[in-house]
Each structure stands twice: as structure tokens, then as C-alpha cells.
Measured scan of single mutants.
Amino acid sequence: MQIFVKTLTGKTITLEVEPSDTIENVKAKIQDKEGIPPDQQRLIFNGKQLEDGRTLSDYNIQKDSTLHLVLR
């Protein structure tokens, strides 16, 4: 499925993911596309910070959902 990740600069990254993917996996995909190390990434969905060990389906993230990427 496709999800979107919006950065603070207003750029939107499109990712191909599975609901069973962990947040860690998603961060690795963002690193592949953008070169941002996962330990600098914080992903936010519906105002909640997403934890590495959880999956997209844990957070009820579905296709065409938009996550927000904050760098630390």
C-alpha cells in the first residue's frame, strides 16, 4: 500500500509499505529515499509519536495515510 510522509519543509515522500511493516522498517525506507538516519527521525500520526517496535496496523495506518516526519 502507499503512504505519504510529510516533512517540515513541506516536501511529501511517497512510500510503498505493508500494514505489517514496523515503524523501524518505515524509517529505513525514508533513509533509503532521503538519506536521513533513522535515529534522527520521529514519525507522528494523528498527533501520536510512533514507536519503532510497533507496526503500521497497530496504529491503524491505512493506505494513503499521511505521517509527519520531525527531525531531532
Rank of each mutant, 00 (worst) to 15 (best):
T9K: 10
G35R: 10
F45I: 09
E24Y: 07
L56H: 00
V5E: 00
D39M: 15
G53T: 10
A28I: 14
L56I: 09
K29S: 15
G53A: 06
Q2M: 07
I61N: 00
N60W: 15
S57V: 11
P19D: 06
T66H: 15
I61W: 01
E18N: 09
Y59P: 00
R72H: 11
T66A: 04
R72W: 10
L67T: 01
R42E: 13
R72Q: 09
T55Q: 10
P37T: 10
G53I: 07
G47M: 12
Q31Y: 13
D52K: 04
S57W: 05
D21F: 06
K6N: 13
E16F: 13
G47D: 12
Q62G: 13
F45R: 08
Q2D: 11
E34I: 15
Q49Y: 13
M1Q: 08
G53R: 09
R54S: 08
I30G: 01
E51F: 03
Q41S: 09
I13T: 15
A28M: 09
D52M: 08
G35I: 04
I3P: 00
P38F: 15
F4T: 13
G10Y: 03
E34F: 05
L56M: 09
I36L: 13
K29D: 06
V26M: 09
K63V: 08
K29R: 08
K27V: 06
I13S: 06
T22W: 11
A28H: 13
E51L: 05
R42G: 04
K63T: 04
L67H: 01
V5T: 02
L50E: 00
Y59M: 06
V26T: 06
S20R: 12
R72F: 02
L8G: 09
Q40P: 02
L15I: 08
D58R: 11
E16W: 13
I23Y: 02
L15Q: 01
G35P: 03
S57Y: 12
E51P: 05
I23G: 05
S65F: 13
L56A: 02
E18A: 05
K33I: 11
A28L: 09
V70Q: 03
L8M: 09
I13N: 03
T55V: 12
R42S: 14
P19T: 15
N25A: 06
L67I: 03
S57L: 08
V5L: 11
V70D: 03
L8K: 10
T7E: 08
V5G: 01
S65T: 15
D58M: 02
T12I: 10
V26Q: 00
H68I: 03
L67F: 03
V5R: 00
N46Y: 06
E24N: 15
E34K: 02
G53P: 11
V26Y: 00
D58K: 07
S57E: 10
E24F: 13
K6F: 10
E18Y: 14
F4H: 07
H68P: 01
K29L: 09
L67E: 01
V17I: 11
T66E: 03
D52W: 11
K29Q: 03
L69F: 02
F45E: 03
D64E: 08
F4E: 11
I23N: 03
S20L: 14
K48W: 13
Q62I: 03
Q41I: 07
E24Q: 08
G35S: 06
S65R: 02
K48N: 07
F45D: 03
R42L: 15
I36W: 04
D52N: 04
D21S: 10
V17W: 02
H68F: 03
G10D: 08
T22I: 07
L56G: 01
L69Y: 02
E51D: 07
I3Y: 00
V5Y: 03
N60V: 05
D58V: 10
F45M: 12
S20H: 07
K29V: 14
L8Q: 13
Q31R: 08
I36A: 05
L67W: 01
G47F: 11
L71S: 13
P19F: 12
E24R: 09
K11Q: 08
N46A: 12
Q31P: 05
S20A: 12
L8I: 04
D21R: 03
S57H: 05
L15A: 02
K63H: 09
P19V: 11
T9H: 07
D52I: 06
